[in-house]
Design a protein around this nucleic acid. Structure first.
Lengths: 224, 224
DNA sequence: GTCTATATTAAGATAGAC
DNA sequence: GTCTATCTTAATATAGAC
């Protein structure tokens, strides 16, 4: 059914939709190949095994997204000053750019990232951190400059809270958007979602720091 | 190996740790029963099937947590006014109470909640919502009273962002605390973590609402 | 490169003796 | 209630013809 050299690509196209919707573990190679209209054995021929296919699916998006984010951040950092919202706004256009690259690209990418953090333990997280640690460092640099009063430990925790809110929302965005559309009788686009997420995250990260009793005996030395 | 009437409980105890760590789908009945030191067939004898076991594991925590949260919220709502932080502080003691109930109970519970939202599609979410919708309604009522300017749709999304940040943090708290302890040379308790999380969440939920271009054409009718 | 057929493994579930 | 043994299903992966 598949034309000459397009089998490899058809697998990727089918796989990303299924992975985004059902997770990596819950998507079988049989489901993928039947949706792609190719033979079961072709996955192993082209990708070796399922794990490699998973990384290929995510890698295709990361290669598109990360360089775009990097250049946004570089532009921002060249400015004299900027707000926390400016920092988080940097992800908007790289993310929405994925919609041109592929239909529903932003949603798919966000779901995949979310799945990568929860479904499989470790190997995708590691894949992302080591491959794109330069971009991630730029991001934390920007956050620090937007609010220099953040101590490293508070920063550390708040960035992880942020990651959690984003990733979780992304992973369940299909379900959440459905509920929202039923309840509020309005279509929810990826753009809407990002517009809602950004101020929430910026406010959380920039929140005043409480000197709660149990946290006063502080002595920060870390760098991460 | 298991004593007389304790097999059913031993299964539950082993299952909750494995489910929290690896997710529901990635934990087999064989792994559970071997860790529990009971026979494979006993799961089906005592619980019927795996899905029921999953619900039993989560149910045991919910029965402990939800009534405690409910009474905290009722006390709060009886007051004349209160802040957003007061609302989120209501979960502190019910959550920490789980640590007395079982070792690392708070962490396990939050991990399970997180798994329930991403691993399986739907049935656990439904289970929680229908069984404890009274408590959840109390919570949203409190949030609304703390910040009456929140429209229902913004509220909906921000509560889900909040859930994401909480669930993700608690689910990966073991790993995160280790990193933090290395980097900042200070022990991190569950209590510390909650103390850090609460102001972040409160600030996010109470953030000023932006009238972005794409969100102006609003028409809210929902009730959830 | 693509197909059929099959090997291999692992999972959920159950029957039936004790 | 608990055990052994087994059924059934479904998944990844591969061998070998074309």
């Amino acid at each position: 059914m598949a034309g000459k050299g397009e089998t490899k690509g058809r697998i990727l196209d089918a796989a990303e939709l299924l992975f985004a919707e059902h997770g990596f573990k819950d998507t079988s190679l049989r489901t993928i190949t039947s949706k792609a209209g190719v033979n079961l054995a072709s996955v192993n021929y082209h990708y070796g095994d399922k794990k490699t296919l998973v990384r290929a699916v995510l890698g295709r998006y990361l290669e598109e997204f990360m360089p775009a984010l990097k250049s946004e951040l570089e532009v921002l950092l060249s400015r004299d000053d900027f707000s926390m919202e400016d920092v988080f706004s940097c992800v908007k256009s790289p993310l929405l750019g994925l919609n041109q690259y592929r239909s529903s690209g932003a949603t798919i990418f966000m779901s995949l990232i979310g799945r990568g953090y929860t479904d499989v333990q470790g190997h995708l997280r590691w894949f992302i951190y080591t491959r794109y640690d330069d971009v991630l460092k730029l991001f934390t640099t920007a956050v620090c400059r937007a609010n220099p009063s953040l101590d490293p430990e508070t920063l550390f925790w708040r960035l992880h809270f942020t990651l959690g809110a984003s990733v979780f929302t992304m992973a369940s965005s299909t379900a959440l958007c459905e509920i929202a559309e039923n309840d509020f009788a309005r279509k929810v686009t990826t753009e809407d979602l990002i517009e809602r997420l950004v101020p929430y995250l910026a406010a959380g990260v920039a929140a005043p720091i409480e000197q709660a009793l149990s946290l006063v005996h502080e002595e920060s030395t870390g760098t991460r």
